[in-house]
């Protein structure tokens, strides 16, 4: 059985549905408190997938994901590097995406985990929960979004504006097709280039603001009364991740 480690604690709150998403995709998701990992870092090696869920770690009081990222990196940097070097996939959603960029895991052009991009306050200045269209970059090496083209997906964040002041870096992200998905209708937060999610050069690490685990039942879709969708498109992301492990690890 493929096992997915769903990191939780200190205000992470979308962990249960992420477990459910991985279970529906054919893996076995397990919630693991960050403190349990800190006490026994070798626990991580028992898993094939690492996932950082959404939520408000440390209340986002000092910048979203920042404190959780500090603590994770401080105690678990070696195990995390090994996990990534072993070719195991990692996903960070919403607060999880914020944690990944603030740890410098994404996009990590430097190779030494220095933060290169950020997710800052929405340009509206407020939190928003709504459904939007995103388009996936079919040329992206991202293993999580392989074969996906477009979907409706919920967003639920106040700090999701993709930002960097390094134009060359942004160009590199685009050139290497590391932008895995973009807002294709309304851009809800002022993200540069409508970026909703990015991957690293290996394609195995995905961070995204929208919540694919928020669309794993057809009835999650706000128009289900009208369109009666038969499947839940968000599940595809998790199936891709699990399938990758099955084929490659």
């Amino acid at each position: 059985m493929i096992k997915a480690c769903i990191v939780t604690g200190h205000g992470i709150n979308s962990d249960n549905e992420l477990v459910l998403a991985f279970n529906k995709a054919g893996a076995k998701g397990k919630r693991v408190h960050i403190q349990d990992l800190i006490e026994k870092p070798s626990l991580l090696s028992e898993y094939q997938i690492l996932a950082f869920p959404g939520g408000f770690s440390f209340g986002d009081h000092i910048g979203s994901g920042l404190v959780f990222a500090h603590i994770f990196k401080q105690h678990l940097k070696d195990e995390l590097s090994k996990f990534i070097a072993d070719g195991k996939p990692v996903i960070g959603i919403c607060n999880g995406f914020q944690i990944l960029v603030k740890m410098g895991i994404l996009p990590n052009f430097s190779g030494n985990y220095t933060p290169e991009v950020s997710l800052i306050h929405n340009d509206t200045g407020v939190f928003e929960n709504s459904w939007l269209k995103v388009a996936f970059n079919e040329k992206s090496p991202c293993i999580w979004t392989e074969g996906m083209s477009e979907m409706d997906i919920p967003i639920r964040h106040g700090e999701g504006r993709f930002y960097t002041d390094d134009e060359a870096l942004l160009e590199k992200l685009e050139l290497e097709n590391l932008v895995a998905l973009r807002y294709s209708g309304r851009n809800p937060n002022g993200s540069l280039n409508n970026i909703a999610g990015i991957t690293d050069p290996t394609g195995r690490i995905l961070g995204l603001m929208p919540h694919p685990e928020g669309f794993i039942f057809p009835e999650n879709h706000p128009l289900w009364h009208r369109n009666r969708p038969e499947s839940a498109a968000g599940l595809e992301v998790f199936r891709n991740g699990v399938e990758y492990v099955r084929k490659n690890l």
Partner: peptide, 10 residues
């Protein structure tokens, strides 16, 4: 109301 998270826990 859109500023409330009404979907977490899906």
């Amino acid at each position: 109301v859109r500023q409330y998270d009404h979907e977490v826990q899906i």
